[in-house]
Design a protein around this nucleic acid. Sequence first.
DNA 1: ATCCGGACTA
DNA 2: TAGTCAGGAT
Length: 266
Amino acid sequence: MTDVASTCDPGVSRLIGWFRTDGADFPWRRTRDRYAVLVAEVQLQSTQVGRVVPYFEAWMTRWPTACDLAAASLGEVLAAWQGLGYPRRARNLHLAARRICDVGWPGAADLTDLPGVGPYTAAAIRCFADGAPVLPEDTNVARVLARRFPDGWPGTPQGLGWEVGQAFMDLGREWCTARAPRCDDGCPLRAGCPAASAGAVLERTPPRRRQSRFDGSMRQRRGVLLRELTAHGSVVADRDAAAAASLVADGLARVDGAVLVLPEHP
DNA sequence: ATCCGGACTA
DNA sequence: TAGTCAGGAT
C-alpha cells in the first residue's frame, strides 16, 4: 500500500498521508457492505453528514440488509425518511432494495441500472464497498480535480480505492472550497496546483443554476402533504389537489376516493 | 434545462 | 431575509 502510494502523483500520495483515517463520521465507508454504502450515500445526497449519521444507524438497525428493506412497506420507509429530504430517493432506495433482494446486484459496470443510482452513487459503491480504484466525483471532488488536474485525473492507483475517495472528499470540503480555498494553509495538493498558482479562485466548476425559492413551492406543499400522509396513513386529497397529483405522479401516494393514501406495493 | 426538501448560513 | 446546497430523473 505504501509502495503503491509512493508511485502515484506526489501530491496525491501526500494527500493520502494527510487525510483523517479515523473514519468516525463515515462508518459505512469501512463496512465493505454495498447496501450500507448505497443507503448512506443516498441519504447524504439529501442532507449533511452530521445529520445523516443518526438516521443511517437507525436505518441499518431496522433494515440491516437489502432484503429487510425490501420486506418493508413504502409507508414505513417514507416515515423513516422524514427529515432526509426528497422522498423520491427513499422510494428509489426501496425499489432498488427489492431488485437487489430479488435478483441480486447488477454487474459492477451496471450499478446505474438501479433506480436512483447515477454515476456518483455507482462510483461510491465501487470505491467504498468494493475497494475498486474508482473516484466518486461529487461536486466537491469535481472542483478539486478541475483545479488541480485540469488536464485530467491520472487515475486512482490500484489498492487505494477508498482512501483516495475519502481523501478527495475531505479535501474538497475542508480545503479546496468553492469560494475561499485555503491553498496556502496546508493544502496537500498545493504544490503544482495550477489554480493556486494562478492566485485566483477560478470559476466554479459547474456553473451554478439558481433554484426557485422554497416558500410556497411545490416542494414545500408536497412535503406538508406527505408528512401528514406518513403520520396518519391518509390525508384529504383536495386539501392541495396539485400537490396530491404531484405525489401520485411520483408513486409516493395513491388516490382512494377523496383521500390520499400510501401506494400499494408496485 | 427543471424539478425535487428543507436545513444551514451570511 | 435571502441565498446556498447536490445527485438523479425527466
